[in-house]
Design a protein around this nucleic acid. Structure first.
Lengths: 226, 226
DNA sequence: GTTGGTTTGTGTATATTGTACACAATTATG
DNA sequence: CATAATTGTGTACAATATACACAAACCAAC
């Protein structure tokens, strides 16, 4: 009755952001069959004495060297034909990393790990394209009702970075004044006494997301919404 | 390496609605240890050749006799200590049934299956209370941005049923005129030429959710939001 | 050091949407 | 036939969203 031979894995769709601007996802090249040489979402088998979250973090670190900033469960994929060899159910996670992590891991073992622009993806192994699409959908939706976008920016960032991130993800122009008015209205961004200038143009003030204040405001019933 | 001994189960949190009004959840009484005699969310092991959704439907039918109207994946619970005997990872689902289903299954084998008001729950087995709380949170959140509330009502219903459902789930009063204005504004409810009178008061017109029209409107970019 | 190019920073007027609110119509009941 | 209960409906005001343009601060090139 409970003679079950299903194997359990975890996979992690990890997004990064560069102000080119583009949204990227972290992929690894498979060394073995099936799908040898194909790009795939990092992941692997869950060990018996390990929680799902621990498994994701471990696999990510083993396969890509990346330490994740934000991680949440995405969806569990359990179709019968996911893997040609055996029945595998995979709990997919969804992660975000800051640009510093981005640069480090992009520089590491480039033959096996790489960032890909989500608008220019290679063919992926297994049903990983479906998993990735699910993750992209979630990311696009979630930035409109939870302040997770900050997890893709440096800890201190110019306001234009935030604006560009939203423009890129939502795929439409955003009015700078209205956007700023709205975000600052929440009161969860601290404006710092620091400026940064990148190339031409007036130097920008730096901002910082105040997570503690956000939770406080959330308690008080304020809802983040773009 | 892949000598994994994790077992995979599915569980289903099924909600029903009665116009007492209250939101109920379908529970089963456990026959065997562990937690013998405790109430639990219906569910069980996934078979090797069966998709997760099939497993949920099968278990629900076997344990409760209920055929589900609406079903979506909720979350996967994989903590180490979920089950005292062995490592079990459970993919939890979230379902809604119409009142007709409600009455039928509430009448069936009452010693083992029963509906419970979500505000008056017994102690639950395993981590099922956590699963249930996750499901309730999801239900409350989801009715505000997707028209799933109709899955808890009869196919034809008076407007006041919908209003009461939202009042109950959101836990606050709703202005009848404004609510009706908003819902009807979406254009996804058909007003029928039928009236129904329950007890005293002016008879109510019946309405019907037009799912096809909803998908059409969604394509056109209209967003459901309460 | 002046000019042109580039980016940041800011306020107001209008349109849209949300909210508050009360009374007549229709039935059941006694 | 009087009373209680429920459904159905519109308008005025408040709050929020949207559209929109120009000055400030720097860099680069001459």
């Amino acid at each position: 009755m409970s003679e079950q031979s299903i194997k359990l894995t975890v996979d992690a769709v990890v997004f990064g952001y560069e102000s080119i601007p583009k949204i990227s996802v972290l992929l690894v090249k498979r060394k073995y069959d099936p799908f040898q040489g194909s790009w795939a979402i990092p992941g692997g088998f869950v060990e018996d004495g390990e929680s799902l979250e621990d498994a994701v973090s471990r696999e990510l670190k083993e396969e890509t060297g990346v330490e994740i900033g934000y991680l949440e469960q995405l969806y569990t994929f359990g179709n019968l034909d996911r893997d040609p060899r055996e029945r595998i159910v995979s709990v997919a996670y969804f992660g975000l990393v800051r640009p510093d992590t981005y640069k480090i891991s992009a520089a590491s073992d480039a033959q096996e790990v790489s960032w890909f622009d989500i608008n220019n993806l290679p063919k992926l192994a297994f049903d990983h394209r479906e998993i990735l699409d699910t993750a992209i959908k979630r990311l696009r939706a979630k930035i409109t009702y939870e302040p997770i976008g900050f997890e893709l920016l440096d800890e201190r960032f110019p306001f234009s970075d935030l604006e560009n991130l939203y423009t890129t993800l939502l795929g439409r122009e955003i009015d700078r004044r209205n956007f700023r008015k709205k975000i600052m209205g929440f009161g969860m961004l601290d404006e710092l006494d620091q400026k940064v200038s990148k190339g031409a143009g007036r130097p920008a003030n730096l901002f910082q997301f105040n997570k503690q204040r956000y939770f406080q405001l959330k308690e008080e019933g304020i809802v983040f919404e773009i």
